[in-house]
Design a protein around this nucleic acid. Structure first.
Lengths: 234, 234
DNA sequence: AATTTAGCTTTGTGATCACAATTTGGACTT
DNA sequence: AAGTCCAAATTGTGATCACAAAGCTAAATT
């Protein structure tokens, strides 16, 4: 009996005392996916993950079902589970859909935006700049997520949020790979424009700023990486 | 020991031989939700559903996790699971988001639309009219779903489809209730406009037609129902 | 009569076990 | 040396059981 070939080592996340094993497995898997700790195309086994996380197969299965419902994982007809691979077409679809939904969600959140909330967003943006100048890409992207989430969450009925997070989860693993291929980080941060539009209560400008922020940021990074990755393969 | 208070009777769905119990439970629950067989606000128990479906609790739990990831079900902090209730605000958010995504998805599918595909859509639309005139609301709404799905599925990378279906699932239970309150069915069917826009390859007209179709159909029906329901309550 | 409390039931959760299907590895044949 | 076939291991699946928390009912206390 050979030793288990590959005991996945998943990044750890804090576990509050009252969260269920299923929820903990979900969070840990989700975080691993988001930061690109599991490569696209990688096959996952329930028992392997259960051992890595330290719980029984049952809660792991439930976590995997959740993730596949969010399209963060793919269940093949072999019933095997893997991280979806990125293609040029899928990337373009994901980015354009994310622009569409986030612009819409921002417009919908605008009427509920208080000046205090805008101040908070401005503070987060300042921290993003600080983190970026310090070269802390980890904190920078995390704060960037935070900025967008806070923006949309101003809406008291955030039905768009789960969908935006699903898109982030689908883009996450690939963007981490993409970051390795980027020689320079285009920090074309449209957050200043977003905040200006918020203060002016200008819905049109807001939607355009949000769309530009995503298209010029995520879109450009991913496209460049895809060009290089596909160039290498050929 | 009193008999079980409420053995849910869920609408049956065909079960192919090769589908897992988990998948079967999912489909049956999903279908029940979609046609409004389970009232909003209704609490669900794992054991009760397992008995109703005829499987053990394990696959039911997995199905419930999937459904809650799609926001078709709500897990309370008591860990109890229920069908979300509809509010005016949530309804408006769902309808506007659905307009936004479906218009976008239709635009994205347009370049992949063949004349044959458009013919098929036209055929489905004809069947919708037939079913509607025959008073078969069940078939009519089912075919309406089919029409929209076929439209979006022309895109070879349909990343928007799961989100659209999630929105349908969130609106489904309520719309069934709403239909009871509608004295007359506004059959303002914009499908003819959609097909014309497709044939002309007019992306703008297509997006507008899709948006109008949803806003004038689902939106109007739901708003009227909400007005009456809330009027009764007051 | 209202409120608290005690005990029972129901419920979600998760670990374990058994089973079937798929996969894997190597030995055998050609 | 390449392909085929059989056996062992791995994997997904699902039922069952045990446990703890939450809910409910009814009795007892104030």
């Amino acid at each position: 009996m050979a030793a288990k070939a590959e005991i996945q080592s998943l990044p750890e996340v804090p576990r509050p005392l009252d969260v269920t094993s299923q929820e903990y497995a979900y969070r840990r898997l989700r975080h691993s996916l988001m930061i690109g700790a599991i490569d696209p195309g990688r096959a996952l086994t329930i028992r392997g993950l259960a051992e890595a996380i330290g719980v029984s197969p049952t809660p792991v299965r439930e976590a995997l079902r959740r993730l596949s419902s969010e399209n963060a994982l793919l269940v093949l007809e072999n019933r095997r589970i893997m991280v979806p691979e990125m293609t040029t077409q899928r990337f373009e679809e994901l980015v354009s859909l994310r622009c569409c939904i986030e612009a819409h969600a921002a417009e919908r959140a605008l009427p509920y935006m208080s000046e205090i909330k805008i101040d908070e967003l401005e503070a987060i943006d300042a921290r993003i700049d600080t983190a970026f100048e310090a070269g802390d890409l980890e904190a920078s992207t995390l704060l960037n997520h935070r900025f967008h989430t806070e923006l949309h969450a101003a809406n008291p009925v955030p039905v768009a949020l789960p969908m935006i997070e699903s898109l982030r989860l689908q883009l996450g693993p690939f963007l981490r790979v993409a970051a390795r291929y980027a020689q320079e980080y285009y920090t074309v941060d449209r957050h200043k424009e977003i905040i200006t539009a918020l203060r002016r209560r200008d819905a049109i400008a807001l939607a355009m700023a949000v769309e530009s922020d995503i298209r010029d940021g995520v879109g450009r990074l991913g496209r460049n990486a895809l060009r290089k990755i596909l160039g290498e393969a050929a």
